[in-house]
């Protein structure tokens, strides 16, 4: 019974990691940029929602605010691509890595200035409290998070399979040059990918905030999401989600069964083990550069 409890809370955390990792991989595949600020995007998305929904701020009903949040985060993602990332395009990888890290700092500072540094909780319809079944204590929020993630995954999958935009994104991320020749506006598509990553981050943020308190340092869980992305194999969207779930599930079990102090090491230890033995993730194949 305890195992089930740990599993569900782990999976719920893993869903958040997975969604952040998903945004990470989306951007990487389409633009070869690595957005080290994706975790802070998630945090920003959560705060934007909080700012709109919570009564002490705007106080808009949740379901009305939701599309607004998506628009704000989408536009923000798109603008970031145009203003910052496009200027860095063609520079060394160091520049891209560092610029997104710096973005994360800026977002964290801005959020702290706007909404303060105290932990707050989001008035989310998903924050449902616990339910007791015998000895089992289940967080309903956890279950809701898992369900929402499943729906989100299904929607994304449909988006990539069915819509013209989704197909164009796939094409652009597999071979930019070929996509460009086929008349796909690669640059605009890349902007749209950033927008999509912003929206996915917003979903992740709302889910995260539904499970507990929120403060500007929440973005740091992005680091676990990087671990998830790498474990999943960086280039693969399902891999990212799965990697997120693995990291999420490992945590509660490690803190239950390992001596204190060792549990927070577990996800990183797994990351390093994966990098050592399967440097390109659990779900990937490798091709070398052609000369």
């Amino acid at each position: 019974m305890e195992v089930l409890q740990l599993l569900i809370s782990g999976l719920a955390n893993g869903c958040v990691y997975g969604l952040i990792a998903l945004g990470f991989v989306l951007i990487y595949k389409a633009t070869e940029a690595v957005n080290f600020a994706q975790g802070d995007f998630m945090m920003l998305g959560a705060f934007v929602t909080l700012g709109l929904v919570n009564p002490e701020y705007a106080g808009i009903p949740f379901w009305l605010a939701l599309p607004l949040v998506f628009v704000i985060m989408g536009v923000l993602g798109y603008l970031l691509d145009i203003v910052v990332l496009r200027a860095v395009f063609g520079q060394s990888q160091v520049a891209v890595i560092i610029v997104t890290i710096a973005l994360g700092f800026v977002i964290r500072f801005a959020v702290g200035e706007i909404w303060g540094h105290e932990p707050q909780s989001l008035r989310s319809p998903l924050a449902l409290g616990d339910v007791r079944i015998g000895e089992l204590v289940l967080g309903l929020a956890d279950i809701a998070v898992i369900i929402v993630t499943l729906i989100m995954t299904f929607l994304l999958w449909q988006f990539f399979q069915r819509t013209k935009m989704g197909l164009a994104m796939q094409a652009a991320s597999q071979n930019q040059m070929a996509a460009y020749y086929m008349g796909i506006p690669v640059k605009r598509i890349q902007g749209m990918v950033w927008a999509l990553a912003g929206i996915v981050a917003a979903v992740a943020g709302i889910l995260y905030a539904s499970k507990g308190a929120l403060d500007p340092t929440a973005g740091f869980i992005g680091i676990k999401a990087f671990a998830a992305a790498v474990i999943g194999g960086f280039g693969s969207l399902p891999g990212a989600l799965l990697g997120g779930l693995i990291v999420g599930v490992i945590e509660p079990f490690a803190s239950r069964y390992l001596p204190p102090g060792w549990s927070q090491i577990a996800p990183y230890a797994l990351l390093i083990a994966v990098l050592l033995f399967r440097p390109h993730g659990l779900f990937a194949q490798v091709r070398a550069k052609k000369v």
Binding site: V88, I98, A102, V106, E113
Partner: peptide
């Protein structure tokens, strides 16, 4: 002291440098 001010400002400086003076 404003928390995060230092790193926030540093982040802005950095982004400006990478954009205009890599």
């Amino acid at each position: 002291a404003i928390p995060g001010l230092e790193s926030g400002v540093f982040g802005v400086i950095l982004i400006l440098f990478i954009l205009f003076e890599p």
